[in-house]
Amino acid sequence: MQTVQFQAKFDFLDEIREFVGNIARENGFDDQAVYHIQLAADEAASNVIEHAYGGGADGMLEISCGVKANTLTIILVDHGKSFDPSEVPLPDIQADLGDRKIGGLGIFLMRKLMDEFEYVSGARGNTLTMTKRKA
């Protein structure tokens, strides 16, 4: 498992996608899976920067990523405001244009793109764990 720390700023999203993308590629994930993993990591980090830290640049965001037994794991730790993912309403992806809600899309995509999604909030911060198995 490799770990890197980033300042909680949108400017680092490129590097975050590269970090998880390289590990996925080195471990034989195909282009489609690499894209899914990068998108899920981006959505997770964007949520932390926007919601946990409210857009302020002082927070830190720690990302670990590794592959074991054909399963890639991403662990994201932050020390900002926690949230309850079960309380984030699912976006209605059938709704008409005018009724489409903007929020919740990131979490929805993470759940769709990855095999497992778990969020735990405790004394050591908020920890989001996502896994994806190699096809």
């Binding site: 998108l39 981006d42 959505e43 964007s46 903007i102 899309l105 990131g106």
Partner: peptide, 8 residues
């Protein structure tokens, strides 16, 4: 590449 920020 486009994330949900672009979709919005």
């Amino acid at each position: 590449y486009m994330s949900s920020a672009g979709f919005r």
